[in-house]
Nucleic acid binder design. Structure first.
Lengths: 209, 209
DNA sequence: ACCCGCGCTGTTGTATACAGGAGGGATAAC
DNA sequence: GTTATCCCTCCTGTATACAACAGCGCGGGT
């Protein structure tokens, strides 16, 4: 593992776990010591995190963990609704049979996990969910779209969404994914767009509670 | 001027001017020598350019200038149409009177330049155009939107758009800006959205010729 | 008691040095 | 003549050292 990846993972995990709370400073030396690398790769990692919106740079202060508020959340969800539904439209036209099969498999797996609720199912559902959305972006075939979305989804806000989901939310989310598969298999771009739009708005609704 | 900015400007200008053609390698040492700085800030500049999509990183090859094709252009214009029209919608709701006044002034200046066509007017129009779109993003009040758009507009393709414009295209572009101002001043989000959508699609049409 | 100025400390920005790995070319063996 | 192997060179990734600058506290002066 490269040193820059170590530094990146250290800061990222620190932010997501709350060890670096929003607004706190992240100095290069601290991270370098924590990750066991020199300042050079830490600098690079911090710039990457800045590009992803996890930290801001204040003049003569260095990196500061980005603070989020409700306005930011609304902004992100609106953009996500727009971009993800666009991705779904594209995927409806251009997804390969193999991609459709993989998506179907993921959606069914997620659906099963949500019904069975075995121990530690929440982490598995979260992981499946991420895979599903990534696979969908792959199917959309627009690297630029993927990059734009990555900058939004990486936000700490988005990562913690599932923790707030009720059992009903989880099942609805899985149902959305299944329905999306049907829309894609039918090559119905409008349908796929609508389902994805509902999916994102439902996520926003769940988070607001 | 910081060393990293010097390095950034050197590479960026080199790419835009065609001195670094698409697909060519950009080694850190070359840039360091060309910009008169050390490799450290060059690394940072190259990562920034990668985040903006101007260069790609291939394993054990370093930075390679991104190559564009028609598919990329279509992709970018579709995303721009979506995001810029969304920005226009937001701006219609939240622009301050001062912002509206600045936009109006810029649109009228651009319109005048397009009619008079004094020497070197093309550069001035390009500059005014950039200012207009930046001011509009400011008025939209969504930093995340601005960042997503920046990654698209920075593309070399976009920078050269005006060079292909006919006089009619230029006048229509200025007319779009003026109409957009009217829509914003009327606080008509739908109107603003539609005008912006037309504006971006017109740009794509001009580029395709 | 309050204010101004100076020096110290902490942090970033930049330069340089070193290690590791991949690719290419030359040379030798078959 | 062809091919395989070895070495050299170039380039990146990382570490360390140094310079510059801002913030802060302390001390002296008024």
């Amino acid at each position: 593992m490269r040193a820059v990846d170590k530094a990146y993972a250290t800061v990222r995990d620190g932010i997501l776990s709350g060890r670096y709370p929003g607004g706190s400073r992240v100095t290069e030396q601290d991270v370098a010591a924590a990750a066991g690398v020199s300042r050079t790769p830490v600098r690079e990692a911090l710039r990457r995190l800045h590009a992803e919106g996890l930290v801001d740079f204040t003049a003569n202060l260095g990196a500061v963990v980005t603070v989020w508020n409700d306005t930011d959340a609304d902004e992100i969800f609106e953009l996500r609704a727009m971009l993800e539904s666009y991705g779904a439209r594209r995927a409806a036209c251009s997804a390969t049979p193999e991609q459709l099969a993989r998506l179907r498999r993921l959606a069914e797996e997620q659906h099963r996990e949500c019904r069975e609720r075995g121990p530690g199912f929440l982490e598995r559902v979260g992981s499946i969910n991420q895979h599903f959305h990534r696979e969908l972006q792959e199917a959309a075939g627009s690297p630029r779209l993927s990059r734009a979305l990555a900058a939004l989804i990486e936000a700490p806000l988005m990562m913690k969404t599932f923790e707030k989901y009720t059992p009903d939310d989880l099942e609805r989310s899985a149902a959305h994914h299944l329905e999306l598969c049907s829309a894609l298999e039918a090559r119905d771009a409008e349908w796929a767009d609508a389902v994805m739009r509902a999916h994102v708005h439902a996520a926003r609704g769940a988070m607001k509670r």
